[in-house]
Design a protein around this nucleic acid. Structure first.
Lengths: 220, 220
DNA sequence: CTTATTTTTTAGGTATCTCTAATTAAATTT
DNA sequence: AAATTTAATTAGAGATACCTAAAAAATAAG
């Protein structure tokens, strides 16, 4: 079973939406996630249904099948491995990798991915802290919460970001909130939800609730 | 000016055919080089003509324009850099790289190619000994002749192969004729054109004229 | 130098993936 | 519950890239 580049992109979007959003994924959601029109999505859903990577009943909803899940995770695996390559080996900044990885993920060659994985030393997380599925599609995700949800005096380690847009990532670079940083919540302002944290036991950082909501932490 | 993947493939084929074949490139030549039908080629030639990467007069012939040359060399540069990456870093055998490089060459990202080039230490030749054009499309090609054309007692160094098919490359691996090997012609049999050479001053090797014709040598 | 052959191009059709506009189904309001 | 709004789908059409079959041009043969 082989998917086209377009089909892979749709399936990946569906996977991501059903992971985050919980309840069923709507045609409109997919359209805006993938920057296309709902009419195109309907068309593609029918095709993905025929290929049995999703279960689809029109006007009703959809669900990824185990086959679809496997294929989506394969694409995500490739995407994240390439991101590691770009950052670790080619010294891309973490806000520059997405577009290129978006192209590289569609290269078809199981051998290439095996070799790349080995070459990168079997990384478990990508530069944004997202877990890399293994060759069988298994993901070891760490239990993590938004920084925003931590209480005062709680400690932890930044392990990932929710938003991977260049604007957000560059902001984090600027203020020094990198993945792996050990943090502690010093204060939370009730009025606006903003938060003050201590980074690596030496630097104080204030951030808005919008920012704190997009930083994921492994509490200790 | 941007080319689609298909357009890049046609242009690359045209470039290679006009380099080797000397005289004008025919529709049928392109069709068989690219594994497609002449009718499809005609179609594409019209489009490439409109995009001004070739000069095209129907029923008459075509010629690559300076623009087309630049774009073709860019694609070839990418292809060969990826081949170096696959062999040097991911330990692909030199007969396994072509298919994958054929996909990777179409990734669009000038930054990626710059970084890859630097990461590979600005290689000047690919694993088959073919020169890698620089960022401006300049190629430093070495004057080289087919092993078949050398005279008895002439010495040289294997620098490239004409045929890059896995079957041929695996044969070369088997007999130990690698790129960089220093060789000397010991004997040439007039009857069948076969040739006997000395490799690295220690190994005698017999080969048919078909093989000797596909090995390129820099004479010393 | 006219006929036959080969080469090349055009015409018409298929598949993929996209769009806009129109229609249909589902969800909300009143 | 009927009317309205929103969401989703179908209809029809465009772009790319391919195909087969038919026509046209160029080349080769008698």
């Amino acid at each position: 079973m082989e998917l086209t580049t377009a089909e892979e992109n749709y399936l990946k979007a569906i996977y991501h939406l059903s992971e985050e959003g919980k309840k069923s994924v709507s045609t409109n959601d997919i359209a805006s996630a993938i920057q296309t029109k709902p009419a195109s999505v309907s068309d593609m859903l029918r095709k993905l249904g025929e290929k049995e990577v999703i279960q689809y009943r029109k006007y009703y909803g959809l669900q990824i099948t185990p086959l679809g899940m496997r294929l989506a995770l394969q694409t995500i695996r490739k995407h994240r491995l390439w991101e590691v390559f770009l950052v670790d080996k080619l010294h891309f900044a973490w806000d520059e990798v997405h577009e290129v990885a978006e192209q590289l993920e569609h290269i078809q060659s199981p051998l290439l991915i095996e070799r790349l994985d080995a070459y990168l030393n079997y990384p478990k997380f990508d530069p944004h802290g997202d877990p890399i599925p293994d060759a069988f599609g298994d993901v070891r995700s760490r239990p993590r919460i938004a920084l925003q949800e931590m209480g005062i005096d709680q400690s932890g380690q930044i392990v990932a970001v929710k938003d991977s847009s260049p604007a957000f990532l560059r902001y984090l670079d600027k203020v020094g909130a990198y993945i792996g940083a050990r943090i502690k919540v010093l204060d939370k302002v009730e009025f606006d939800g903003s938060i003050e944290i201590l980074v690596d036991q030496k630097k104080n950082l204030f951030m808005s609730k919008e920012v704190a909501n997009n930083i994921l932490v492994l509490t200790t």
